[in-house]
Design a protein around this nucleic acid. Structure first.
Lengths: 218, 218
DNA sequence: TTTTAAAAGTGATAAACACTCACATTAAGG
DNA sequence: CCTTAATGTGAGTGTTTATCACTTTTAAAA
């Protein structure tokens, strides 16, 4: 999961509909699509190394072999680059989550899938500095924050559905709990990746125990 | 608790010991102590209004009626102002926490104190924009992050002690759980303050139920 | 009081950035 | 080849943090 490969050119500088900033050009020619991909790849590498607050537009331009002006052709501002990367990682994770929860039909399967998902998420965050950094940026960029909140609600809904199937009840009943647990899961994984190995293990296990009980006893 | 009063002049621009930046002057004359207090008050007000990333040194200088140069006499850089405010709020909160947990001796008292603390903390974060903002800044300022992590471990230790007293066991046994729960508590309160009223209530109650069980069943 | 040295205070100025825009270049269809 | 739209450019603009050589204030010694 998330093996640090190229970010692909599918992510597009969110065609600014009603948000304040001017809409940027959408690449239609092959050359410009390749440049956009290169820009995102370079930005991801720079962020992995130094964090997004140390990201310099001039660095990205130089690394991607384009001019400053070209950067602003696809991204209304610096934070839009981070947002594009966030969307890329979100799409990737969501696919894993859907796969893991899709076939849950019993409480035992629910527990297994949930534990597995937590471990996978922890491993991904631990190994992908960019993901940790996107979380930081979430605190200073309102647009990114609402993007991530929306994503989180979406994932929580998938969990609520799985809970509903496992317990043979309506998903509505589990929505709020699933959302809380999902958010806490993100928080606990961030915490676990920021302390040393033995403590991170204890924290993660404690959380699993506490939340598995909550998910199963309803 | 935390009634938005003046920040007081006790907070001092952390006398840079071995951290990279030059040590700043410690005010010894009355006039300069008053100016320092004014600077912190103005900064807190500006942060409450617009957030610390919108804080401008020139604004603070103008608001406090001092020159830019004077700001740098007490603070090595902009983020040091936020750190000074963080230390102020930390000291304030810790006192409440100590009072609330000091007399815990039974499981029932532990549960009551814990629930009460959560409610108080939620109310404080909800009513003090500066505290929410300091949390955001934590993500971009390494020094602030470690300051807050240290504070969190300190508070978690207070909780672990209370658990030990309530259950008649060694505090060592509860350290890791207390730390996890404390960190999750901070996360859940931030989450609760960022969603609307009815959902925030559901989230907070769910968390109380889940964690109270964990704290009492050990 | 006068003198003196340390403390406190100042603001023009350097340096670092994000972002713009008038213009240059390249691709595609006729 | 010619025309038009898509792309691409980078010097220049504006904003902001932070510095430092210098002035003013304070308090205590002479």
């Amino acid at each position: 999961m998330a093996k640090g490969q190229s970010t692909g050119a599918s992510a597009v500088a969110s065609e600014g509909a009603t948000d304040g900033s001017l809409p940027r050009r959408q690449p239609v020619q092959k050359r410009s699509r390749e440049r956009l991909k290169k820009i995102l790849d370079v930005a991801a590498a720079r962020i992995a190394r130094n964090g997004s607050d140390q990201l310099r537009m001039s660095d990205v331009a130089e690394g991607a072999g384009v001019s400053i002006g070209s950067l602003y052709q696809y991204f209304p501002d610096k934070s839009a680059i981070v947002r594009a990367l966030a969307e890329h990682y979100n799409a990737q994770s969501r696919q894993c989550i859907e796969e893991a929860l899709r076939d849950v039909a019993t409480p035992a399967q629910l527990e297994a899938a949930y534990i597995d998902l937590l471990d996978q998420y922890f491993a991904m965050v631990r190994d992908e500095p960019v993901i940790r950094d996107i979380w930081s940026a979430t605190q200073t960029d309102k647009q990114l924050m609402s993007l991530e909140l929306t994503e989180s609600r979406l994932c929580a809904a998938l969990l609520a559905d799985a809970m509903a199937r496992a317990h043979g009840q309506s998903a509505k009943k589990y929505e709020s709990t699933a959302f809380m647990i999902w958010q806490l899961g993100e928080a606990v994984v961030r915490l676990a990746t920021s302390v040393d190995g033995s403590e991170s293990k204890a924290i993660l296990e404690g959380f699993k125990r506490m939340t598995a009980r909550e998910i199963l006893q309803m």
